[in-house]
């Protein structure tokens, strides 16, 4: 297989969100797409108790040379794909740097502390400004709203993968995406996921 040049090598990407948003599926789909390009991929993630309403993170290391550790070193994320806005800031605190870029889904999921009134969820405008301040580039898209229009909020994760393809840092082909999700998924579901991927691409191009 031909090796593909990357924006950085290793390219360090974090997919973050809240348990139940399809973080693990998104990381596996993207990892398999990169693996099909002959790249070395390492994915590190936590699941189990942390999934029950907690913050979740997948670390992807993509390299044409070698396999890297399943945890990205502090300050070294090139890209953060965030399924939930405040999780973006949490990840930037540990893994961000001035060159980090972000694609952020704007739909909040309130922590129980916010629901109970003990904590405050910042306004989206504040969040946008803070995320912009901490990044080189930040794209904000309403992936969950678009996913609900498509029939199920769970498609938000695949929309974010489509949006990532639109940024062009990684050799992401729609045909690889289709091949990857077709493994063990019935056809109507594949169609819906392809639609979500395309909508993600459109959303980011419209930003």
């Amino acid at each position: 297989m031909e090796k593909t040049p990357l924006a950085s090598d290793p390219y360090n990407l974090v997919i973050t969100g809240v348990g139940g948003q399809g973080n693990v599926m998104a990381s596996r789909v993207l990892g398999n797409m990169m693996s099909r390009k002959g790249l070395n991929v390492t994915i590190g993630e936590t699941f189990g108790a942390s999934q029950r309403g907690g913050s979740v993170m997948s670390h992807l290391r993509i390299s044409s040379e070698t396999s890297w550790s399943p945890q990205i070193p502090k300050g070294k994320a090139h890209m953060i794909v965030a399924l939930e806005p405040i999780e973006t800031v949490r990840v930037l605190r540990d893994y961000g740097g001035p060159e980090t870029r972000v694609i952020c889904n704007t739909r909040p999921i309130h922590p129980v502390g916010v629901i109970s009134g003990d904590q405050v969820y910042p306004s989206l405008e504040e969040l946008r400004n803070w995320i912009k301040e901490l990044t080189a580039t930040a794209w904000f898209i309403d992936a969950t709203d678009a996913a609900v229009r498509l029939g199920d909020p769970i498609f938000g994760n695949i929309m974010m993968i489509g949006a990532l393809a639109g940024v062009g840092d990684l050799p992401m082909d729609r045909s690889d995406f289709e091949a990857v999700i077709s493994q063990g998924m019935p056809k109507p579901k594949v169609e819906a996921n392809l639609k979500a991927y395309d909508m993600g691409l459109e959303l980011i191009e419209a930003v």
Partner: peptide, 25 residues
Amino acid sequence: PAPQAYIKRAGELAAVAAPGRDLIF
């Protein structure tokens, strides 16, 4: 790992912008 000023600012912002998520059912 990153410029000191960045680490400081990101820490300050995360403290206000990212309320913790308790584990829940």
